[in-house]
């Protein structure tokens, strides 16, 4: 069975992670643009970063027979400075046309501030203007519920956003239901400590079904591990679910959502 990792920051990982993922049958991965663990000192640093994830990282992945895709944006943790963010947004279109860029992401909120919301809205508009998919980061810990509601309210009030072309990531028990009900895609992140465990992800799948559900490990520079995605696949098998259901969650569903970009090559198996 092939696996897709819909969210991993390979710029922060070693080639050993590519090798491990390849051995665990991962055939495609997606790298949303995000914070580097420190604030970048100029908009040009983002240009370099976007070049890295859209040009260099695919060559690293290809050595392990993995297709590497990415998303482009000014991330919410660095979106507080509106003027700075707008400079970054000004050169995003040149990257959106590249062959491995799937859309605008991971945009969203961090501390749920007014400025973060302004930049979130402007990037939604950019995505609509260029007919791009949208990948959304929901805030961490105590800010997640409020921030998720703020973004959902904005998108629902907008009137021009197709929920089927938007995925909210890092959802948990208190945020997934409202998004699922409105027709958005929801991704559940499996982390060693925070976010979800493999067991909780399968609990949510059993409660809400497979439709528009995605799982990722969101490996980055912090405590995280790409193998938690495969731990979750194993948990689903341990819980008695069929191979067809497992394949739907870990391969076909990401193929369906990401395939809307027109650039994602893997195809659903059924």
């Amino acid at each position: 069975m092939k696996i897709i990792e819909p969210h991993v920051h390979m710029i922060a990982r070693t080639v050993q992670d590519y090798e491990r993922m390849a051995r665990m049958h991962t055939v495609a991965i997606c790298e949303p643009a995000f914070w580097a663990g420190y604030d970048r000192t100029s908009p040009q640093a983002f240009h370099d970063y976007f070049t890295h994830i859209s040009e260099f990282e695919p060559t690293r992945a290809a050595q392990y027979l993995i297709d590497h895709y990415c998303w482009i944006c000014i991330n919410p943790k660095e979106a507080e400075d509106v003027a700075f963010s707008r400079e970054v947004i000004s050169f995003m279109p040149e990257f959106l046309s590249k062959p491995t860029v799937l859309g605008v992401g991971e945009i969203g909120l961090n501390k749920n501030t007014r400025n973060e919301m302004i930049i979130f809205a402007e990037q939604v508009e950019l995505a609509l203007k260029y007919d791009q998919l949208i990948w959304i980061h929901t805030p961490h810990l105590q800010d997640k519920l409020k921030g998720t509601r703020m973004m959902l309210d904005y998108l629902e009030g907008h009137g021009g956003v197709d929920p089927n072309r938007v995925c909210f990531d890092h959802t948990e028990e208190h945020t997934l239901p409202m998004l699922h009900e409105k027709g958005y895609w929801t991704a559940m992140t499996v982390y060693p400590v925070t976010k979800n465990s493999p067991e909780r992800v399968i609990d949510l799948v059993e409660k809400f079904g497979l439709e528009r559900m995605i799982v990722d490990a969101s490996g980055d520079w912090g405590p995280s591990d790409p193998a938690t995605l495969h731990d979750t696949l194993f948990q689903m098998r341990l819980r008695g679910h069929s191979d067809r259901e497992v394949e739907t969650l870990f391969y076909n569903n990401p193929c369906v959502f990401l395939g809307q970009s027109g650039k994602f090559k893997p195809q659903p198996t059924f």
């Binding site: 105590q142 997640k144 409020k146 948990e172 208190h174």
Partner: peptide, 15 residues
């Protein structure tokens, strides 16, 4: 039921 959801809501900032 829904203990996990209710605990996460308890740990969330108030609206």
């Amino acid at each position: 039921p829904e203990r996990a959801r209710r605990i996460l809501e308890l740990w969330s900032v108030k609206e």
